[in-house]
Nucleic acid binder design. Structure first.
Lengths: 124, 124, 124, 124
DNA sequence: GTGGTCTAGACCACG
DNA sequence: GTGGTCTAGACCACA
């Protein structure tokens, strides 16, 4: 499980970290019950601050992707969180916003569909 | 052309403003050459800060949706910007990110497609 | 609404702050929609660090007592959170633990009841 | 006298250990003068750290539940500690805090009383 | 050594 | 001026 951080990215470091851990879980590289590195270890590995890692772990816990056991470290949660109505509504809204942006620059219909296929194909 | 601002939204006000102007152009309510309200006027109308409007106009100019003539006001650009390679790449990336987020919560395949159809249908 | 912090208390500062804000809401001194001081303002008022206030606000948001609107500040939530099954179970467990502690030192039956009455009477 | 440790609990291990020994005394499974396992033995049995057992024993001694005779082992104190003013004040304070937390989530009056009855009934 | 907490100082985007 | 984010350095309780 490799994680890479882009310090100069627009997206905050803690979200980059979160995303990559989530993707590790989705891809099955991280399995339920697997331990995560300690915040200190992860921080030195990534070359970032301890608090930044801590924040990422906190978000993951709040979302239900990992469990945190005080000084006993953190583990991948036994059951990953599923979607609910709120999540679907949020997702729908973001898809809509993206589509509107696309249309405003002339990306419509088949072109949009093709782009989407491309994106999905590369996703896994 | 009505514009409404949600001060308590997550998305910054200047982006809300930008988006609604773009949509006005896409829908044809604002036509090439149409004048935009002055920064001052818009700020007063919306009850928002002058800097905020300025920033939105700046973004719109950078994107090619409007032209700004110093203190002589701003107008809708004669030809709206089209997509280029960079835009498509960006869009593809965002679609991918959205799809990955969706999958991480168990939204896949047909469910995702259905959601997308729904979003597109409501878009116009 | 007065808030006082005991820096040398066992309970973390951010929890002291959280508790006092919650009590302010319960007592009606803070009403739904009322604005909370900015984290910076609160920090200098209390003589504590900005991040500590931020953490308290974050907890209050997660619990549903307050809403946070980015740079627009924080407000008391329109509807305070109610109890659910998990909360009751937790509460029951804590009451039990407390009673066990009491009994282990000889505090039982009527004495415990009297103590409880005393505590409740002073509570509001 | 069985003792079980939950490594993943929120409450520190040394307090779990302390609590279970106290409860053993309250229930009469451990009688005044009974020897406690050596720190080493207990640590091995529970599969926990030696320091942790030591800390628990230290707390029990400070509270007056056990007597420690250097390397000659520890024993249940001849007379268990009784409550004093300080203990009652502490207890009252904790009951109050718990009640306030309860009220903040809408648990009041009869509901609280019912919950308390439930907790007491299950306690022994 | 580990997480939890606190402080301090800094930069940025936003308004 | 405001919150969001990041870094750095520190102390404590726990194991």
């Amino acid at each position: 499980m490799f994680i890479t951080i882009e310090p100069n990215s627009q997206t905050p470091i803690y979200l980059q970290l979160r995303r990559q851990i989530v993707e590790g879980i989705v891809r099955g590289e991280l399995r339920p019950g697997d331990p995560l590195p300690s915040v200190r270890q992860m921080a030195v590995d990534m070359g970032i601050n301890l608090h930044t890692v801590n924040k990422a772990y906190g978000v993951l816990q709040a979302e239900g992707f990992v469990e945190i056991f005080g000084r006993r470290g953190a583990r991948v949660a036994p059951a990953p969180p599923r979607y609910d109505e709120a999540f679907l509504a949020e997702l729908r809204g973001q898809l809509q916003a993206l589509y509107r942006e696309a249309r405003s620059r002339g990306v419509e219909g088949e072109l949009f569909a093709a782009l989407l296929q491309e994106a999905l194909r590369e996703a896994p």
